[in-house]
Amino acid sequence: MSLPLGPLFTLEHVPTQAEFELFARVSGDDNPIHVDPDFSARTRFGRTVSHGMLIYSFVWAELRRRFPNAVAKRQTLMFPHPTYAGEPIRITATVDSVAGRLATIAVRVARAADDTPVTDATTVLDLGAA
């Protein structure tokens, strides 16, 4: 498969408290910082924050939609700032390199309001069967 270098996609999403709670249920990570507004109000964040992997799951869903047969070979993830329910995020993916069947995709997720980064990721996909 030939994949050009450069922008791959940009999406916007508004995470919800319901998504935080459902992700806590399926992942088993029910830390109160994600699901308990009263607890979270007393933290430095002042409200619930998303699981980092929930945010990455939005990225992965779009990658799978575009490349349904691709296999993730490796990824790096950093979550430099929190993501809050009700605040839009912008997900931007860029094809950094292609070597044979492997494509390296750089992903940046930022708060739409002020461009504060909430997730930085690199994912290497094997597009062999894509």
Rank of each mutant, 00 (worst) to 15 (best):
R111C: 07
G100D: 10
A61Y: 01
H34F: 04
L125Q: 01
R64W: 11
T16F: 05
V98P: 06
V98F: 07
I33T: 07
H51A: 02
S57Y: 04
K73H: 07
V118A: 07
G52W: 04
I55Y: 09
A70F: 11
T123I: 14
S57L: 06
S27A: 13
H34C: 07
T119F: 00
F9S: 09
S2H: 13
L102I: 10
R66H: 03
S97N: 13
T122M: 10
W60E: 15
S50C: 12
A61T: 14
T122S: 10
S2Y: 10
T104I: 01
P15G: 08
G28T: 05
P82F: 08
V14R: 14
T10C: 14
F9I: 05
L22M: 13
S50L: 08
G6E: 12
F45S: 01
L77D: 14
P82G: 09
R25H: 15
T123P: 03
R90N: 09
F67W: 08
G6A: 06
V59I: 14
L127C: 12
D115S: 13
H34D: 05
A85W: 02
N69I: 00
E62I: 01
S40K: 08
P15L: 11
P15V: 09
R42M: 06
A113E: 14
F45T: 03
V49P: 00
A72G: 13
S50M: 07
L127M: 12
D114I: 09
E12M: 11
S97Y: 00
S50D: 13
A130V: 09
A18D: 13
S50W: 04
H13G: 07
P88T: 09
E62Y: 00
L102M: 10
T48N: 15
D115P: 03
S40V: 04
Y56W: 10
W60M: 15
S40L: 02
A112F: 04
N69A: 13
S40F: 07
T48K: 04
H13L: 08
V124T: 08
G6W: 00
L8F: 02
G52K: 03
T83A: 14
R101W: 02
K73I: 08
T48F: 02
T92L: 00
